[in-house]
Amino acid sequence: MTTEPSAPDEEERAALRDRISADSLTTRRDYLRIVATVSGGLVVGSTVVAAGVLSRHGDGSAPPLKVADALTPGQAVAFGYPGEDDRALAVKLADGTVVGYSAICTHLACGVLWQQDRGTEGELHCPCHEGVFDVRTGEVTAGPPPRPLPKVIMVEDAQGAVWAIGTARSGESERSGLCRGLRASDPALAGAAGCRADEGAS
């Protein structure tokens, strides 16, 4: 630097004139400004995510829903629970267990399909990027999905009809999910059912 201009204002003006008359270049200062803008955007993004802008399967509770009069082993049924648009999938496994999951892939929200002939007892497969979920637990066994599938809790009544009675989020236990649903609809009943305070706190 040569002579220091008197006022900082003047100095800034001189710097600006210098910039404008120079060759068009992105300086490292400009990069810093761009990076700072991106950083601020990420703060905003993180805030809206934490505030709950993303939709999450199983938010809101619904009365039990009968999804099928009967299921034979290996058969799957698609339905919407708890809301019409909460696409879900129930499968009766070979040993008679009925499992239910959100049918929306946790990767980029493609539809998850039941593939009976894959894996040892069949698996849930997302064709978009070859995501694979364990049909018994909903855990990711292959591919890019970052989280297990949210569960839909299924029961079979004495007549063999299959009902959806609640939901559990990715990685949440069925019990905790049921308690959360119960607490939302009837807190007294949740206490009576033996839900501890930390179970299903959302």
Partner: peptide, 16 residues
């Protein structure tokens, strides 16, 4: 690091 934190935040929120 912030990008990483955003993925962690999204996963955490989705898990409740």
């Amino acid at each position: 690091g912030q990008l990483w934190a955003l993925t962690v935040a999204t996963d955490a929120w989705m898990k409740g």
